[in-house]
């Protein structure tokens, strides 16, 4: 097989560069904050801290799986091995310079994590996985540069807010007010879990990133940031895909000289 180096994403702009960076699993996401395992579990709201994982089937070792080449090829994730149930974490990314946008969240997740099922909508990106795998993934998604406590929300339901203006503290709207801005500390504090059930302990996710820092890390084009129309390479790439699909469906090799 010809050796192939993934290019991840086209484009000549800093936004395209950020997209390439986040999708590339060899790039180590910069850690900006710490959330304890217990606090993460509280925000996810699927089990209580210390509570055992619920199983939907016995551990694979006990089942005695049938012979199957695919099973031999694919190493089960720890959650699958243990028989964990499938649970979720869901994020809403504001249009105002949130580090990630839904498609990048999905492509990044698929490139970096195994055993995840990621959805993409305009205002939310659900990620489902076996519970212990989910917790590991969610921890990285919250602790690193692709999260900002003001412009990214952890929301299982009632997700509206990505396109709304920001509140007076720069926070994205959340009808359930799962998080609040602590003016004394300048930190964003979660008071409810991702589906809006009040927490018995307030959980700080730290200070919002400054606007300039967000602009550096974002992978969203904006006319008041880096405008899309400045990235001609990306625009022409998209136009070419469109022309190839139009002329040849999903057999672009049939089109010559385009």
């Amino acid at each position: 097989m010809v050796e192939y180096t993934p290019q991840y994403y086209p484009g000549s702009s800093p936004i395209a560069a950020n997209r390439r960076k986040y999708i590339n699993p060899n790039y180590k996401l910069e850690k900006l904050r710490t959330i304890s395992d217990e606090d993460l579990i509280r925000i996810l709201g699927h089990r209580a801290p210390g509570e055992a994982y619920k199983n939907v089937h016995p551990p694979l070792e006990e089942i005695g799986e049938p012979e199957c080449p695919i099973r031999e090829l694919v190493e089960p994730t720890p959650g699958a091995k243990a028989g964990d149930r499938i649970r979720y974490v869901q994020f809403t990314d504001s249009v105002y310079f949130a580090p990630l946008v839904p498609y990048m969240r999905a492509w990044m997740g698929h490139m970096r994590y195994r055993g995840v099922d990621i959805g993409v909508l305009s205002g939310r990106s659900p990620l489902e996985a076996r519970e212990r795998d989910l917790e590991k993934v969610a921890k990285e998604l919250i602790e690193t540069e692709i999260f900002d406590p003001a412009r990214v929300g952890i929301r299982g339901a009632t997700v509206h807010g990505h396109a709304l203006r920001l509140d007076e503290n720069g926070l994205m709207f959340d009808a359930l007010r799962r998080y609040q801005f602590n003016k004394a500390t300048g930190e964003v504090v979660y008071v409810k879990n991702q589906v809006g059930v009040p927490l018995d302990k307030l959980i700080s996710l730290g200070k919002p990133l400054p606007e300039e820092e967000l602009k550096k890390r974002t992978c969203e084009f904006r006319v008041d940031g880096i405008p899309f129309r400045t990235d001609l390479e990306l625009i022409q790439f998209i136009q070419r895909i469109h022309m190839l699909r139009t002329e040849a469906g999903f057999n672009p090799e049939k089109v010559k000289n385009m």
Binding site: V101, L121, S122, F228, R245
Partner: peptide, 26 residues
């Protein structure tokens, strides 16, 4: 297609499915 790449988001499934293959059937 341009919208999806510019904003990194589009609409509900009907946009993310039918509109991604719409070029081919237009």
């Amino acid at each position: 297609l341009l919208h999806k790449e510019e904003m990194g988001r589009l609409g509900f499934y009907g946009y993310d499915c039918q509109d991604q293959c719409g070029s081919t059937n237009s």
